[in-house]
Amino acid sequence: MKRLSLSQAFWFLLRRDLLLAFRNRSEMANPLLFFVLVITLFPLAIGAEPNLLARIAPGIIWVAALLASMLSLDGIFRSDFDDGTLEQMLLSAHPVPVLVLAKVTAHWLVTGLPLLLVAPLLAMMLGLDEDAYGILLLTILLGTPVLSLIGSIGVALTVGLRKGGIILSLLVLPLYVPVLIFSSSAIDVAASGLPATAQISMMLAFLFLALSLSPVATAAALKMSMS
């Protein structure tokens, strides 16, 4: 049998996870639907006054993105944990953080990236200033991977538990706070016509920090969960 190189293993795992996701499309649509639904609730609860909605649109969109990302987190490792694939992954000769990164990337491509498609539509419905659309897309592009990366630590810690859901939100949501703050403030600033460079730089910094550190923590947590 031929041994896979590390990059081959990475791409192989990524393709496998994407393939699994495409075979199960309804599950893919769920976070997206949830995202749209939560945002629909806000005008119903607060009232449809255009100025108010435009003012709070960045916050609503990001809170909904946070919740949607959190709800879909469990899928990163759950099925692999149940059927034993995860154990094989940990036993393989390749460094676990890299394999974790492949799985998280696949998860983000399936659940985070589609938010890009609906976010402008929802922003339009909420009456967000048009100048802010570019920044909105940019924050989603930079912010949702951070959510997936941080979330993967929480999932890895709770994957062995029967009722991990509630505890997962308690672990993960406080760690999401910086992303929420900077992304919504970037949109806010852009909507009032100012440059959002500072916020975007901070989000880039978060992304690189999470990319470099969180797979290591996730790998350690997975090893703990499998023991």
Binding site: I153, L157, L171, P174, L175, V177, P178, I181, F182, M202, F206, L213, A217, A220, A221, M224, S225, S227
Partner: peptide, 21 residues
């Protein structure tokens, strides 16, 4: 061990959260 990992992750995040807030 789970709590140990969580505490360390939290430790790295506390300054980030603090300054973001």
């Amino acid at each position: 061990r789970a709590v140990a990992i969580l505490a360390i992750v939290g430790m790295i995040n506390i300054p980030i959260i603090h300054y973001s807030v």
